[in-house]
Design a binder for these strands. Structure first.
Length: 931
RNA sequence: GCCGCGAUGGUGGAAUCGGUAGACACGAAGGACUUAAAAUCCUUUGGCCCGAAACGGCUGUGUGGGUUCAAGUCCCACUCGCGGUACCA
């Protein structure tokens, strides 16, 4: 009987669908378990063989958990908004919705063939109005909230208004863009617009002029995590800095909670570290440096700086301001104004990329001086682009002896360097380490650096010249995108101030446009929409020709970024059809949070920060019961491509095999991996592959053409893309699933190499053949041992996500049980393999005489008694005396015992000399040695 | 620069708690079946040495040290590769 995988797989996929086998209920007596994959962006290229890796792993785990008796939620959906669909629309005029839907259909078809146990009734799409209604809803709530630092919680903005009415900005400990000072009377005197401007300083979703990463090629701003080395992550286009009026989310308010939360979740240390670095907490002090003008100290004018090295104040020999700093205007003297302006213009001209690649020391003197509050020395104030406006206060105290950047600057401008640590040689470079004994530092002399930092912090607080402070590197997330294909903001503008569309009017649907490019006047694409104005009185969208700024107002033209839709999708799966709430209290109380989340580590500083932030906000609202969204997270590695090469002899149409290429002058050329098997080129197919190769000639070795190979990214241009559909067609879904797991550890990146898939396929065929006849005979001890060994191994492996080592265990069991046709063995075996090869398992399970689905079976119970070794105890002599007893597997001949134990003289001596110790020497053969 | 991860045969990888390194699979070589091929099955397969053979010996997990009766595994120093981050004061 042949293993007809195509027939088997089609049959069971249809059966599962007909039985609604994977439909999940929110009501169950079973314990719940929530397994989630990072949902894909449906690109036009379809899935390649690397995409399903994580999905297969999560599917195995889901099926295992179900067999263990859990009610398992394992959904799938699509992150459907994004740049590629829009870029394609700009080029072809096709509506992004059309191409997106087409791509989703293709993805679902491909995923369907692999046999995942998704409950498709719970599918979500971020671009569907009944989904993005809740994205808009949450944004609206963020606008209506501020963050209370004392309560460590988001609060309704109305509370803040009451505070202002009562005492103005006094006694306020809240997250804010800048510190404002006003009284209750001031507040009362403000008009509506002015009050709105004040509130904007505190809202969790706020509109402000911010320095943004502007990408001219994409025509939009990008978040920090969407930019790498001055280029956009998508497309690799140059990015420049610009100040624009943008929506932002006050993620920074949650910095400490995002940091603390990491301690409570089961993620890999490396991922947590990446997030810790990104949040970048640093403890230090803020200090005030008085400014001098015309040789006298200006009353009330101070430069506020942030430092983590308060101990080094005595070594401050100059100050540096960021070019964009507010202080610049205040301190530049008229004699230096021209020079400074020239420098600032030069800085503005430089692109982010130039700044990164060309890191020479630049700067300009402002003409003003500050006073070192401790040494009382007069120190010059400079401007330089090595100081960043966005971090700390945008101004620093420079300590050239103990900071390498300040050192480089001091050397360039011939500024004094005062060493502060005994024994530190600063003649060639700075001494940056936080260790050693202080000198030249007044009352700090003789202290260790760490003591000195603490002492100085105490001193500056006592003297009122500064305060202890914690800074975070984490910035607020820029939330506006000048694009069409994204969630519209539920926002309209009245007198240039934003207002939210009422909750009951959501969703605010994305309007039709006739062009996807920005308007001629540079407005985002939504500026092309006719039906895009808000009638405040009638609470509905109307034609924009009706805008009168009395009752009809313009709507926001930007859309939300990609991470908006992906920040809470895991909640929506719990209750996907609810139109009253993002998720009902009951559904959330049942499913709680994601128990296991699988996805790539490339989302460490993007999606995985944003969705933690988003979830914490919803937690503060009381909408969700868990502070963290993902209890456990596993990063699957990337699957790289394995490219093949042929070697063309330069100037000819001759191709030389790998082993002989050194004898010619050759040029390597990528060749489609689908016409190469085990690195042997199919020369006929090669000739047909492209017209230019029709009359190719080959220089063979041993009658074969051997190709070279390299590991590269899987991409069309490298001709190394392997399509899962082809694999399913040739080998079946079960083989593909097993082989993807067999390839190596889940978390490691590895190249896809189709060589080797035959071995896995052969194993499944052999396994299948064991089920041709099934008898009711009683199994032997050896058969039960093989079975239970396998139960133990596979259970351990799945729980530890070590799927790659399970497959060899199955292969060994299969060869040990080759002759076994007994139901008592074959039936549990079919359950064990069900998570890995669900279609074949169903077939095996039914061959054992069952009429239900194997998915509703129970995971086999391990019985240790079948594993107990058959052992014999031997006395072992050493130096003529019986020194210890050794317990050995029965099948080991006695004469080998002493040889094994005494193989190492030192070990034997050790065993003889150390009395009552139990040492496991060799599991399986020598069971243990008992003294 | 800083943080994290990794390095084991021709290849992918195994060794889960410090206890036979190289499981399992691929590839390769040889053999069986076959008119032949495919498929299937069997044998061998880290390197080196002794030997007719059996048996055996030495060596071996990126490099150099160390701890231990025993190290791929633990410690110290280094080399290379991958990923993240980068004037964060």
């Amino acid at each position: 009987m042949d293993y007809n995988f195509t027939a088997i797989e089609q049959r069971w996929q249809q059966q599962w669908k007909a039985d609604c086998l994977y439909k999940v209920s929110n009501k169950s007596d079973k314990p719940k378990y929530y397994v989630l994959d990072m949902f894909p962006y449906p690109s036009g290229a379809g899935l390649h063989v690397g995409h399903p890796l994580g999905y297969i792993a999560s599917d195995i785990y889901s099926r295992y958990k179900r067999l263990q008796g859990f009610n398992v939620l394992h959904p799938m959906g699509f992150d459907a908004y994004g740049l590629p669909a829009e870029q394609y629309a700009i080029q072809t005029g096709q509506h992004p919705e059309v191409t997106t839907n087409k791509n989703i259909a293709r993805y679902k078809e491909q995923l369907g063939k692999i046999g995942f146990c998704y409950d498709w009734d719970r599918e979500v799409r971020t671009c569907s109005p009944d989904y993005y209604k809740w994205t808009q809803w949450t944004f609206r709530r963020m606008f209506l909230s501020y963050y209370d630092n004392k309560l460590q919680k988001a609060q309704p903005i109305d509370n803040l208004v009451r505070h202002f009415e009562a005492e103005g900005s006094a006694n306020l400990d809240v997250a804010q863009s800048e510190e404002l000072g006003f009284t209750a009377a001031d507040w009362q005197a403000m008009g509506d617009k002015e009050r709105q401007q004040v509130l904007m300083n505190y809202r969790l979703a706020y509109l402000a002029y911010t320095k943004v990463n502007w990408c001219p090629a994409l025509g939009t701003v990008l978040a920090n995590d969407e930019v790498s080395e001055g280029l956009s992550v998508r497309g690799g286009h140059p990015v420049e800095q610009r100040v624009m009026r943008q929506w932002s989310l006050r993620v920074s308010a949650y910095a400490q909670r995002l940091l603390d939360g990491l301690e409570t979740i089961d993620w890999t240390e490396s991922l947590k570290d990446t997030q810790r670095n990104w949040i970048g907490r640093s403890e230090g002090a803020e200090m005030l440096f008085p400014v001098k003008a015309n040789e006298t100290v200006v009353e009330g004018m101070n430069l506020k700086i942030f430092t983590t090295r308060a101990d080094t104040v005595f070594g401050v020999t100059f100050m540096v301001l960021a070019p964009e700093s507010e202080y610049v205007k205040q301190v530049v003297t008229s004699e230096h104004a021209a020079e400074v302006e020239e420098y600032l213009a030069w800085v503005r001209r430089r692109t982010e990329r130039e700044r990164i690649s060309d890191r020479k020391v630049t700067g300009v003197f402002t003409g003003s001086y500050a006073v070192n509050p401790l040494s009382k020395a007069e120190i010059p104030i400079y401007i330089s682009d090595y100081v960043l406006a966005g971090y700390g206060t945008g101004a620093i105290m420079a300590v050239p002896a103990h900071d390498s950047r300040d050192y480089a600057f001091a050397r360039h401008f011939s500024l004094p360097v005062i060493p502060l640590i005994e024994g530190a040689d600063v003649s060639e470079q700075s001494f940056d380490a936080k260790e050693g004994v202080m000198m030249n530092s007044g009352f700090l002399n003789g202290m260790q650096v760490k003591e000195a930092i603490a002492a100085m912090k105490r001193y500056i607080e006592e003297q009122g010249i500064g305060r202890v402070r914690v800074n975070y590197r984490l910035r607020d997330a820029i939330f506006s995108r000048q694009r069409y294909w994204g969630e519209p903001f539920p926002v309209y503008y009245k007198d240039d101030m934003p207002y939210m569309i009422p909750e009951q009017c959501l969703p605010l649907c994305l309007p039709e446009v006739d062009k996807f490019l920005p308007t001629e006047t540079g407005e985002p694409p939504l500026g092309n929409a006719q039906l895009w104005a808000w009638n405040e009185a009638e609470k509905k969208v109307v034609d924009k020709s009706m805008i009168d700024n009395q009752t009809v107002f313009p709507l926001e033209l930007c859309t939300m970024p990609g991470f908006a839709g992906s920040s809470a999708y895991y909640l929506r799966y719990m209750d996907p059809h609810n139109d009253e709430a993002l998720v009902s209290g009951e559904a959330n109380a049942y499913w709680q949070q994601v128990d296991l989340y699988l996805g790539g580590s490339e989302h460490a500083t993007g999606h995985l920060i944003y969705s933690r932030f988003w979830n914490k906000f919803l937690f503060d609202l009381g909408l969700v019961c868990k502070d963290e969204p993902f209890a456990k997270l596993i990063n699957q590695g990337m699957i790289q491509g394995r490219s093949n090469f042929v070697y063309r002899v330069i100037g000819t149409n001759k191709y030389v095999s790998l082993g002989l290429k050194d004898q010619y002058e050759v040029q390597p050329i990528h060749v489609d991996v689908n016409i190469v098997q085990n690195d042997v080129l199919d020369t006929d197919k090669f000739r047909c592959w492209m017209p230019e190769y029709n009359d190719a000639e080959f220089i063979l070795e041993d009658g074969k053409y051997i190709c070279g190979w390299a590991i590269e990214k899987m991409s069309k241009s490298m001709f190394n893309v392997v399509n899962p559909d082809d694999m399913v067609e040739r080998y079946g879904a079960d083989t593909l699933r097993l082989y993807e797991m067999f390839l190596g550890p889940l978390e490691m990146s590895k190249p896809w190499d189709t060589n080797g898939i035959d071995g896995v396929h052969r194993f499944l065929r052999k396994l299948w053949n064991m089920y041709e006849t099934v008898t009711d005979d009683a199994p032997t001890a050896a058969e039960l041992k093989s079975l239970h060994k396998l139960i133990k191994k596979v259970t351990w492996d799945i729980e530890n996500f070590s799927f790659n080592t399970s497959i060899p265990a199955f292969m060994i069991a299969q060869s040990e049980l080759q002759q076994c046709r007994k139901r008592a063995v074959l039936e549990p075996l079919s359950v064990l393999i069900a998570p890995f090869a669900p279609h074949l398992a169903e077939e095996m399970w039914h061959r054992c005489g069952n009429h239900t689905s194997v998915c509703d079976a129970s995971w086999p119970v391990l019985e240790e008694r079948y594993l107990v070794e058959d052992t014999v105890k031997y006395p072992v002599q050493f130096n003529g005396k019986v020194r210890f007893t050794i317990e050995l597997a029965k099948d080991m001949p006695r004469e080998e015992v002493e040889r094994v134990v005494l193989a190492s003289d030192d070990t034997a001596r050790y065993l003889a000399g150390n009395q009552p110790k139990k040492v496991i020497v060799v599991p399986g053969r020598i069971v243990n040695i008992v003294c």
